[in-house]
Simulated scan of single mutants.
Amino acid sequence: MHIRLYTKTNCPLCEKAKAVLMELQADMAFTIEEVDIYQDDALLEKYQLMIPVVELSGETIAYGMIEKETVRKRLRAAQNS
């Protein structure tokens, strides 16, 4: 599985989201790709107020305050499908 994490620099929520994902990696196999929305105008326009955004298979599964259990449930569901 592959997670895309949309972030921006100097973002405490983004750092917390990354830490949550790294904790989950200890139990589940997935890769994390971090994407800075300030490198792409379309992404900046799309996600500006939602950051951080966690995306799995092209679907947004969490944004803002990232809760570990919410992401864990979505990852498990994706593993079992």
Score class of each variant (00 low, 15 high):
23 E>S: 14
75 L>M: 07
13 L>W: 08
33 E>P: 03
63 Y>N: 08
41 D>S: 11
38 Y>P: 04
12 P>T: 03
21 L>P: 00
33 E>T: 15
48 Q>P: 11
46 K>A: 08
12 P>K: 04
22 M>G: 14
70 T>W: 06
61 I>N: 03
7 T>D: 04
20 V>P: 00
68 K>A: 04
24 L>G: 02
12 P>W: 09
80 N>I: 12
61 I>R: 02
77 A>K: 13
57 S>C: 13
46 K>L: 13
2 H>C: 09
2 H>Y: 14
72 R>D: 07
44 L>C: 10
16 K>F: 07
5 L>E: 01
65 M>G: 06
69 E>W: 12
23 E>Y: 12
27 D>Y: 15
68 K>N: 04
40 D>Q: 12
77 A>C: 15
73 K>F: 10
80 N>W: 14
46 K>Y: 07
26 A>C: 14
22 M>W: 12
63 Y>C: 09
12 P>E: 05
27 D>I: 11
31 T>I: 08
30 F>I: 03
41 D>W: 10
78 A>Q: 03
27 D>K: 13
37 I>C: 01
11 C>S: 03
15 E>W: 05
59 E>W: 06
4 R>P: 02
38 Y>C: 08
63 Y>F: 14
14 C>Q: 02
79 Q>Y: 11
42 A>E: 15
72 R>N: 05
45 E>F: 13
24 L>H: 04
41 D>I: 15
67 E>S: 09
40 D>V: 05
47 Y>R: 03
13 L>M: 14
34 E>N: 13
2 H>Q: 13
11 C>F: 04
40 D>G: 09
55 E>V: 08
80 N>A: 14
8 K>H: 07
7 T>L: 07
79 Q>G: 09
30 F>N: 01
8 K>F: 09
37 I>G: 00
16 K>D: 12
75 L>C: 02
34 E>F: 10
75 L>Y: 01
72 R>C: 07
25 Q>T: 05
55 E>L: 03
62 A>Q: 01
79 Q>S: 09
42 A>F: 11
79 Q>K: 14
37 I>D: 00
67 E>K: 09
22 M>F: 12
66 I>R: 00
